[in-house]
């Protein structure tokens, strides 16, 4: 018997795969955005509006990750973007290997921007690097402003926080300032956008950010 000291995190093999994938995507000039949120926060609805607004400017594709069904991929294809549905076989998150297989499902066509709509869940997706260039999380007004306290890792790992469904704010006690200050305590550089996919409020700023990121990713 002999003992070998390893001292590496259990997800080290995933971290390595993710780094390789990120490098390949950078070479291709494809920005992969990992979109994370709880179920029902409005991920697909945000994507529908974003794609409608930006599809003349950018070549966009979407990878929908769910435990089951293809309802989200069908919604995205209806508005004219390429979509693939990835099934996670019961897993609560996407990892780098699953992301690579889903990307292969998009074929050889070049894309400027690929969204990975991760499994609806504020916990596990934050733990697994998918190889994405940017991580964006959504928090909808009905979910409450206390979520940074309950799911700190998600807020720490995200480059952007989008507060969604601002049109229903009058009916809820969501304190935007409190939410943002809680998020910034965990992640001082997190960018925040507040949007409503119903009214279009806030989409200009969000889409401007997306354009900038796609540009900087290419060089």
């Amino acid at each position: 018997m002999k003992i070998i000291e390893l001292k590496e995190t259990v997800t080290a093999s995933n971290d390595r795969d993710a780094e390789v994938l990120r490098g390949e995507l950078k070479q291709k000039g494809t920005l992969l955005i990992n979109l994370m949120a709880s179920p029902g926060a409005g991920k697909t609805t945000l994507l529908e509006r974003t794609i409608r607004d930006m599809k003349d400017e950018l070549r966009i594709a979407v990878m929908e990750a769910d435990v089951d069904s293809d309802v989200d991929a069908v919604r995205i294809e209806k508005i004219g973007a390429k979509a693939v549905q990835a099934h996670t076989d019961g897993m609560c998150h996407m990892d780098a290997g699953m992301t690579r297989r889903a990307l292969e499902g998009l074929g050889d066509e070049p894309f400027d921007l690929v969204f990975l709509e991760n499994v609806g869940n504020l916990i596990c997706p934050a733990e697994f690097d998918t190889g994405a260039g940017r991580c964006v999380m959504l928090l909808s007004v009905p979910e409450g402003d206390d979520k940074p306290l309950k799911y700190p890792l998600m807020f720490s790992k995200s480059d952007v926080l989008i507060i969604t469904k601002t049109d229903v704010a009058p009916y809820f006690d969501f304190d935007v300032d409190a939410c943002v200050s809680r998020a910034r305590k965990l992640n001082p550089t997190i960018r925040v956008f507040a949007v409503s996919a119903k009214t279009g409020e806030g989409f200009e700023a969000w889409e401007e950010w997306v354009s900038e990121q796609v540009e900087t990713w290419k060089y």
Binding site: V10, A12, M91, C92, E127
Partner: peptide, 23 residues
Amino acid sequence: MHEMGIILHLAKSLEETAAEQDI
């Protein structure tokens, strides 16, 4: 909640180590 995912990665890391070091 994500124990299964972690175990899958752990097994993969260990298999890689075993292959590299001829274990």
